[in-house]
Design a protein around this nucleic acid. Structure first.
Lengths: 152, 152
DNA sequence: AATGAAATTTCCTGGGT
DNA sequence: ACCCAGGAAATTTCATT
């Protein structure tokens, strides 16, 4: 699918404020509200825009602990297996296969340290996990959920 | 600030779809649209809801490469220094101080490998960085931007 | 094919109870 | 918290280029 400059600006606008009205966006990109809607619909159905979400302060809703865990897995572990396994754990907010020493990196979010420990144990109990290496998040310095800068 | 069960459900609803109308949300939580709006306004001004954003497929807008980089820093590096430094790099989409061997973990997003390499070099050139350890993301298995499950 | 204008429906948002 | 009402926005239809 082709994304032109106007689409880019519409996307940027929605990333900055997903609840902006079509006419508001239209003003910024010099288009009528219906035209903006049609473009947004097109971008959505093409999968460029996956959805719209609220950015919530995890601490404010009782999730104060966060960690990144490197997973070392047995030889024949497939990404599909990893996907299925990690999705089973509600504490997993991100999971990636990576190059380097580890096979995967998992981003966990939990209510507190006890909860995190419990989640970690559950994760380590997955049959393909041989060992793990954890980094507990002490403070969040930067966290731009899905900010997509203009193309390089 | 006090968050009751209804607030939790409103938040969950907005996380799932930030463009849902107040009446739509009201239906799900058995509240009138004005009541929902008042709660959302309160949650926003309290900082529980930080904002609303579009979830964009980075690949679709030309950002195909991602990496996590562990930063090893000199003894007297403050979180404030790290914040300032990492924010200078547009490729940094996340940065955290962590417990463990490394001092910080940085999440990078770039257009391609060449761009990533360049960003990494720039990051390594920061005066307080003594060494780095990179994990390039091969595939994204799970990525739930700001999904906040019900409290434990 | 994509846009703008108009018309209809739905929604937002203030004040009153 | 709900109901109500005036104004704004969304969304469909239609005509234009």
């Amino acid at each position: 699918m082709q994304i032109d400059d106007v689409d880019q600006r519409i996307i940027a606008s929605l990333v900055a404020d997903a609840r902006a009205s079509y006419s508001e966006i239209g003003e910024r990109v010099s288009l009528s509200a219906p035209a903006v809607k049609r473009r947004v619909d097109r971008l959505r159905s093409a999968g460029v825009i996956r959805g719209f979400t609220a950015v919530v302060d995890p601490a404010a809703v009782g999730w104060t602990t966060e960690a990144f865990v490197e997973l070392y897995c047995t030889g024949r572990t497939t990404p599909a297996q990893l996907t299925v396994a990690t999705r089973r754990h509600p504490e997993v907010v991100g999971a990636y296969t990576v190059s380097g020493e580890a096979d995967a990196l998992v981003h966990l979010r939990a209510a507190d340290i006890a909860h995190l420990e419990q989640a970690l144990e559950r994760l380590r109990a997955e049959p393909f996990v041989t060992s793990t290496r954890s980094m507990i998040v002490l403070s969040r310095l930067v966290d731009s959920p899905n900010i997509v800068p203009a193309p390089h």
